[in-house]
Amino acid sequence: MERSTGKPICVVFEAQTANLAAIRCFVMAAAEAADFPREAVDAMIQAVDEAATNVILHGYRGSPGIIEVELKVDGNALVVRLRDDAPAFDPTSVPAPNLDIPLPLRPPGGLGVYLMRQFVDRVSYRRTETGRNELTLEILAPALSRDPGDRSGSRDPGRSSASADGVGRTT
């Protein structure tokens, strides 16, 4: 059984490393509420953290700014979009390290981007019409084949499917 497509849930965070934990908590709560398997949720949390860290440390570089984190279930895909107003940067343009090359010979940079790619199935980037960075991370989960009441793969079996729709702000 395929999950239905849900409305996106969006929260805006100030771009500070102190908010990384809050960003991870948001992704965890929203993704688990959407009934995604724990492994997929954990992987998305790791990828989102790396992406947000890149924006904060390398995009804004200490300047004030925001990161908009939007989570959506699209069929069997868990989709997270991060939008920011930092200078344009396309993480997908960072070459993937060739793991066949000995570590000392690999070019520098891109560790966070590498980890981000390792944990999700698809990474895409676009510059929006309003001049923002928009990074999309997607994880494809197996189709639901269990009884909907059997959520043994999630951390909190008591939670119901997400239907929330709203924008919040945290500082």
């Binding site: 790791q46 860290t53 940079g109």
Partner: peptide
């Protein structure tokens, strides 16, 4: 939870024990 920044910290402690300076976080794979 450990991110790439945490991995860098772990590696840095290993280097410190060898009397070396931690690497520049900007250097990524380097």
């Amino acid at each position: 939870f450990v991110s790439s920044a945490g991995l860098l910290a772990i590696h840095s402690i290993g280097l410190l024990l060898r009397g070396k300076q931690p690497p520049d976080p900007e250097y990524g794979w380097g």
